[in-house]
Design a protein around this nucleic acid. Structure first.
Lengths: 228, 228
DNA sequence: ACCTGAACACCGTTCAAGT
DNA sequence: ACCTGAACACCGTTCAAGT
């Protein structure tokens, strides 16, 4: 039952016993390849083993469980992102960092699945935590106490996770009848009770695909730094 | 392959054929009972059939698929919520509605799972859309155009979904070793690179359980209505 | 018109036995 | 020290046959 933080292959000092057929790095690479080729939902322990040409149960010598694999992938992914150039204004620095993280998560939709794994915030490793540091530092530079900076981070994080999750699940959705599901709420719309919904019914689907994330965090970040 | 909007039992005009052993309403009630008693993750098509005392495959005459069941439950749930008293100030009206919806979703954590179902926004029915109407109306009352009100709603919605999802998955999390996962990021913390993270490491877990949702939407709502 | 069992095509995970 | 097949305990869904 290996832990994420202590890979067995690295810990093994001696050279006795049966030689390993795979490694953490190889597993991660295979998982990524599998997702890119066949899609996120095809990433199963069994398929991953086939991809690697090993028995599926062998994977449990390298990973605690499937969730462990997901966290490992997220950490590797977030850690590898190129850090953006940061502006000097604290609020704008938050916006820049948040947009970078959002773009990162949005580009790999499977990341959205991992975001909802139990307690994942405490399972980021140092390389993946740079963005937490940057947001906290910017909040403090903007006049927040350390405690307030944590709350600023949490707000930004909730908004980001929500945006990524909702949008990754709403693009190009089609109903079982093959027709695209109408995001405009026009189905059985009671116009007297839902007057404002009716007023935007025709334009909703157009407005809903617009990328308003940056505007959202901007309003958020400036609003909170002013109040702090 | 029945659709959510046209229950078969209701549509059937004649009285020929084998009598039904169950109904939409009974299925929904049984599902809720199952969740309340055994937990969200125990809600499977097979267990639900056992709960109802019918064959599992029979359920497919009343539901298109499992996702359909989830949406049906969400709609029933959101539609039944007592509408809160609304203040006159537009921004505060948004806060009140948003808090009510958040409380609702947070109280039934399984709702969080449904929120990530493909295209669920377009699958709310009229009874569940009152909160959309209220937020759009408040935004317009606050000076937004109809188009802008949609963007206000989207921002609030992303934030709400994120808050509910993250928080429903972060409470009382324990690692596989039985120790609670430390949300304070203290594991292998490089204090030189992550100075601000280190500064809040000790208080993070205390701050993270605080309910700051209302403060978040408030900053958001006021900020956006000012800019619009 | 509605219900059913059998079957299909899968899952994640454990564990004793093997090299 | 590491790998493996068999097995366990499940899933959601389809479909021909039955009442």
């Amino acid at each position: 039952m290996p832990r994420s933080t202590t890979p067995k292959s690295a810990a093994a000092g001696g050279r006795t016993g049966r030689p390993p057929v795979t490694s953490r790095a190889r597993i991660l690479a295979a998982a990524r390849q599998l997702i890119d080729r066949d899609g996120w939902d095809k990433l199963t322990v069994r398929r991953l083993a086939v991809e690697l040409g090993i028995g599926s149960t062998t994977l449990y010598h390298h990973l605690r469980d499937k969730e462990d694999l997901l966290l490992l992938m997220l950490n590797e992914y977030v850690g590898q992102v190129p850090r953006p150039e940061l502006p000097t204004d604290p609020a704008e620095r938050i916006v820049t960092v948040a947009v970078a993280v959002r773009d990162l998560l949005a580009a790999w939709p499977w990341a959205a699945e991992v975001l909802t794994v139990d307690g994942f915030m405490g399972r980021f490793d140092d390389d993946a935590r740079w963005f937490v540091e940057e947001i906290l530092a910017a909040a403090v530079a903007g006049g927040c106490s350390h405690d307030q900076s944590v709350q600023v981070f949490r707000h930004i994080w909730y908004y980001t996770v929500g945006e990524v999750l909702v949008r990754s699940r709403s693009v190009g959705v089609r109903g079982p009848d093959g027709q695209p599901v109408d995001p405009a709420f026009r189905r059985s719309l009671d116009e007297s009770r839902l007057a404002h919904v009716a007023a935007v019914a025709d334009t909703w689907s157009v407005l809903a695909v617009e990328d308003t994330y940056a505007a959202g965090v901007r309003a958020f970040a400036h609003g909170m730094l002013v109040r702090a």
